[in-house]
């Protein structure tokens, strides 16, 4: 937790007459302090969890205390994608596209059992068993759906993660790193990840008999 006291990093003696007028801190701390208290989530709900996300924004739980009340419907203006609900095969191309459209620095929170690993619907033929198969996830929040308190706790974990980042090392200030777009999945006879085309072709060429024995083991 960086409150204002911690923002001052001692080590440099501030003369008594300049106390409360001058602060000395590191650039990282100041930068992260600003970022952690103004994480703007994307207004983006998939299923049941989205309702608890709205409840967390509402008066009783009041995410505004964390500077996170400004929900943006556009990915271009958001820092955080809260994947709130079941990710389906039909929806994942849109989710990856939205993620690609978000500017750095960006974070992803997988809210609830479905977004984390498929949840109660994992076996469904149209369900992606966890959004982390396609986009990198920073924080997983368990629950079905997680209560607003759980969501808040997850977002506080995200703040801790932000605190530990350093301007010198973060990926979005590295040379040549900003074009790392995730290839958008394609809907064919089933969901096709362009990164796995060769693998799918090779596995699909196996004889069905082999599949059966493999399944038995």
């Amino acid at each position: 937790m960086t409150d204002n006291k911690e923002l001052n990093s001692p080590g440099y003696a501030i003369p008594d007459d300049l106390q409360h007028a001058v602060s000395i801190t590191t650039l990282d701390r100041l930068y992260n302090w600003g970022r952690r208290w103004s994480v703007w989530p994307m207004m983006f709900g998939l299923a049941c969890c989205a309702i608890e996300m709205i409840a967390a924004q509402a008066a009783r739980y009041d995410l505004a205390r964390f500077g996170m009340e400004v929900m943006r419907p556009s990915p271009r203006q958001s820092d955080l994608m809260i994947v709130a609900g079941t990710v389906t095969k039909k929806m994942i191309p849109a989710i990856v596209r939205l993620y690609n459209q978000m500017p750095e620095p960006k974070y992803v929170v997988a809210m609830g059992a479905c977004a984390s690993g498929g949840g109660p619907f994992k076996e469904g033929y149209n369900v992606v068993a966890g959004v982390d198969k396609f986009v990198p996830v920073d924080v997983y929040i368990p629950g079905c759906p997680p209560t607003p308190q759980a969501l808040t706790a997850g977002l506080m974990k995200l703040q801790e993660k932000i605190d530990k980042q350093s301007i010198r090392k973060v990926r979005w200030y590295q040379k040549g790193s900003d074009s790392a777009l995730i290839p958008i999945p394609v809907l064919g006879p089933d969901l096709m990840d362009p990164r796995r085309y060769a693998e799918i072709k090779q596995l699909a060429a196996q004889k069905p008999a082999e599949k059966a024995t493999e399944a038995k083991e």
């Binding site: 095969k89 498929g118 994992k122 469904g124 033929y125 369900v127 992606v128 068993a129 198969k133 394609v186 809907l187 064919g188 006879p189 089933d190 969901l191 096709m192 085309y197 693998e199 799918i200 072709k201 596995l203 699909a204 060429a205 196996q206 069905p208 599949k211 493999e214 399944a215």
Partner: peptide, 20 residues
């Protein structure tokens, strides 16, 4: 599952040849 995921494809399927 042979694809290690919630997937299944027809026999001898080649994703690069399919344009749906």
């Amino acid at each position: 599952n042979i694809y290690k995921d919630n997937l299944q494809f027809p026999q001898n399927f080649d994703p690069q040849e399919v344009r749906i």
